[in-house]
């Protein structure tokens, strides 16, 4: 388990959003009928990345707990599996996407819970990111049904 400085957490979030967005763009190509939905999810990931990076860069100053470490988080718990097999079917792809959203939402929520009083601006941004991921999940579940 690595040491989760703010920088490490933000880098992880950036990678998470990049990979998720790429996954949804891939789905949009494979399943053109639902491409609009998948592209909107990809866009949501890009927006979250912007929110998270901007919050970090624009509000975290050198004086406020820059050595802060998010204790008790193991980032490997939040790694996502987003590669698609060549012959993956629609149902399987949606299932994978739903799992991805759940894991991402957990990541944001867990980080937010650990920084409510110190680095509080990160908590606000991460709560918002978790909310967006939960909405994504609901949207995907509605497609399954």
């Amino acid at each position: 388990m690595g040491n989760n400085t703010a920088s490490a957490i933000i880098s992880f979030a950036e990678r998470l959003e990049d990979r998720s967005a790429a996954y949804y763009r891939d789905l949009a190509e494979r399943f053109p009928k639902e491409s609009e939905v998948f592209l909107s999810l990809a866009k949501g990931c890009e927006k979250t990345k912007t929110l998270v990076v901007q919050t970090y860069r624009e509000t975290v100053s050198d004086a406020l707990e820059t050595g802060y470490s998010f204790e008790g988080l193991d980032l490997s718990d939040y790694e996502i599996e987003e590669t698609l097999l060549e012959d993956v079917d629609y149902g399987e792809a949606l299932k994978k996407a739903t799992a991805l959203e759940g894991r991402a939402a957990d990541f944001y929520q867990d980080v937010a819970n650990r920084s409510r009083s110190l680095l509080a601006t990160i908590a606000v941004a991460f709560n918002s990111a978790a909310k967006r991921r939960k909405k994504h999940k609901q949207k995907l579940e509605s497609l399954v049904n």
Binding site: S7, V60, S61, D62, T66, G67
Partner: peptide, 26 residues
């Protein structure tokens, strides 16, 4: 040039990248 400036600070001074970015912002 935010990121480059921050990394330069870490290289020339020794502080952590989080500290450097905070300094850049200030």
């Amino acid at each position: 040039n935010f990121e480059e400036l921050s990394r330069i600070q870490t290289m020339e001074h020794g502080k952590t990248i989080d500290e450097s970015r905070g300094e850049t912002r200030r």
